[in-house]
């Protein structure tokens, strides 16, 4: 066996176990799902081909559009909230701006370890009409009928969920940035410090440019995670009241598993994928531009 043959065989050997599992458990069912999305399959009988009808219906559905809006808000909170905040926290910890950094780092990361279902339950116990905060307000203001109106507002009901998401996921980004800051060559920063650069100058001129790649990568996670967000929201509100907090994954779930519209639900899950691909392509375009500018 020549060296090149050996190399090629090793390549396949290293790739095969993962790829085989991945293909059979994810790619193949997804392909099946994709083909169903062009049918009116309802769970039994032969699927009838209906072309793009499911997609047209979904895009014209007011509930879907509101879900899409909620999803985009979640994307926005992840990309423009969790990531910058995670970076800021990592930066503060890395530059040792606070004492006991190790403790804070632990606390900020801790929410990741808790199941979304548990998080949802806890927050519900705190904020629902029968929860802790409402009970306190009722006692303090002597208004036994007090309820938090924000949960009953079509536009704003998603905000408390956005807040919980911010709390839950910022830790992940903090850890990623913290690790990457550690990897940066300290000599560069030291040289800058000797030259009398301030913290903010170092941040803008050295650290951020070196982080463009990492930021772009985390943004990909943020976008894909945000678009398939399900567990936390489903456990907190189930998409309700009145679809106010619904997201596409819940929309898909309800149509598939409650209304037995399998083809329709498949189309909705394909839209999640398409949307994510689109957003990620835009993101890569932007990050490439940035990288070039810094070079």
């Amino acid at each position: 066996m020549t060296f090149l043959q050996q190399k090629r065989m090793s390549y396949y050997l290293l790739l095969a176990p993962g790829l085989l599992l991945f293909a059979s458990i994810i790619i193949f069912p997804v392909a099946y799902s994709l083909s169903l999305s062009f049918t009116s399959f309802g769970g039994y009988g032969k699927p009838a081909f209906i072309g793009l009808e499911n997609y047209v219906k979904i895009l014209g559905d007011e509930v879907f559009l509101h879900s899409l809006r909620n999803n985009l808000l979640i994307v926005a909170v992840s990309v423009f909230g969790q990531i910058p905040l995670g970076f800021l926290l990592a930066f503060l910890l890395h530059r040792k701006m606070v004492r006991n950094g190790n403790f804070y780092q632990t606390m900020i990361f801790l929410p990741i370890t808790i199941s979304p279902v548990v998080v949802a339950l806890l927050w519900n116990q705190i904020f629902s009409s029968s929860g802790m905060v409402v009970a306190i307000i009722r006692n303090l203001t002597d208004q036994p009928q007090y309820v938090m109106k924000i949960f009953e507002n079509r536009q704003m009901a998603i905000y408390p969920i956005l807040f919980v998401l911010l709390w839950m996921h910022t830790g992940t980004y903090m850890i990623i940035f913290f690790a990457n800051l550690q990897k940066m060559t300290p000599s560069l920063l030291e040289a800058a410090q000797i030259d009398g650069a301030s913290e903010s100058q170092m941040l803008g001129r050295i650290i951020l440019p070196g982080m463009v790649g990492t930021i772009a990568t985390t943004a990909i996670f943020a976008i894909s995670g945000s678009l398939k967000a399900f567990d936390l929201i489903y456990s907190m509100t189930g998409g309700g009241p009145a679809h106010f907090t619904e997201v596409i994954a819940i929309y898909m779930y309800i149509n598939t598993f409650k209304y037995y519209k399998y083809g329709f639900g498949s189309a909705a899950s394909m839209i999640i994928v398409l949307l994510a691909v689109g957003l990620i392509l835009i993101l890569q375009y932007i990050s490439r531009k940035f990288e070039r500018r810094f070079e």
Binding site: S129, S130, Q145, V147, F151, E152, P241
Partner: peptide
């Protein structure tokens, strides 16, 4: 109930 649509 106040906030009935928020009550599990």
């Amino acid at each position: 109930s106040p906030g009935t649509n928020q009550l599990a």
